[in-house]
Design a protein around this nucleic acid. Structure first.
Lengths: 151, 151
DNA sequence: GGGAATTCTCTTACTGGCTAAGATGTTCCA
DNA sequence: TGGAACATCTTAGCCAGTAAGAGAATTCCC
């Protein structure tokens, strides 16, 4: 790895910080738009990004909430029509949380605006540059998850 | 602007989504590490990223909390030693919230790990590539703020 | 200049979500 | 089969949030 100028690192740190703050604001907007609390939206996002349906307990682990709190979260999400409780046929103690909305991106202005914003940004780069950016994003996500989150 | 392949957009959308979720987890880690609630950490972050000291009312606007809630937030942050209340000498109704910790990046493992992660990622790119990535980040932050947040 | 209206923060009463602990129902295994 | 382990739900109590209004300072306007 070659030498990294301190000013470069400082600038990129600022970008990360700014992105981070914008992300928090974005989540607040989405939650408000969907008529959910930040906690409920966060749990719904977890359930939607997962491969299969999550169990209530797994949502508690991932969200950091108690199992009791998750019961309330699922109650509210179910009442709002975003998810459905399904008992796991292989282990009837478990409750699987099935997301009943096809595609989240359909939900509300914030997602549409975010997609439009992404299209506009990507439009400023040619294929070779997009390749660099994509490699950066993949590396950034993988490295951050490994070194910061999964610890 | 040239044609954007749907698969490309889909992949980048996934990256955004993943970054977004990691960011939320990161904030939760930072808050836990600092002994603060998510709300308190969010407000402290607002105060730290601002140019000068913010007023209590401005924090309420930016955070979306009521002014009453912000009073409690500042109470807790002040008790924990992160900020200090200072009456604005030019308008003594106002309460300026001064951050008393020099540099946030000094706080706890999550920030250090995030910086290490960033250094590792950037190390995989040469100067020309970094220039592309930096231009992407600047555009992404500016466009997202303009089209998604400031509305 | 001075009284009224406005602005800013804090206080209060109340609501609602969170945790901890235990209850209920299910599965695993000796 | 019976008991231990497990997954979720329920309950009681607590704490942070909102809304409304009080108190203090400032600005407006005659």
């Amino acid at each position: 790895m070659f030498h990294m100028e301190p000013e470069v690192l400082e600038r990129f740190t600022w970008y990360m910080r700014e992105q981070s703050a914008l992300t928090v604001m974005f989540h607040a907007r989405v939650a408000e738009q969907m008529g959910l609390s930040a906690t409920d939206e966060k749990c719904l996002d977890l359930a939607m990004r997962a491969d299969g349906p999550l169990t209530a307990g797994r949502i508690a682990e991932l969200s950091g909430l108690s199992t009791g709190a998750v019961t309330g979260v699922i109650d509210r999400l179910e009442r709002a029509g975003y998810v459905r409780r399904v008992r796991d046929p292989h282990d009837r103690r478990k409750v699987l949380v099935e997301v009943t909305v096809g595609d989240v991106d359909k939900f509300g202005a914030p997602f549409e605006k975010a997609r439009d914003s992404l299209v506009e940004v990507l439009g400023h780069f040619d294929d070779a540059e997009l390749e660099v950016i994509e490699r950066y994003l993949q590396l950034q996500i993988g490295t951050f998850r490994k070194r910061v989150i999964d610890t």
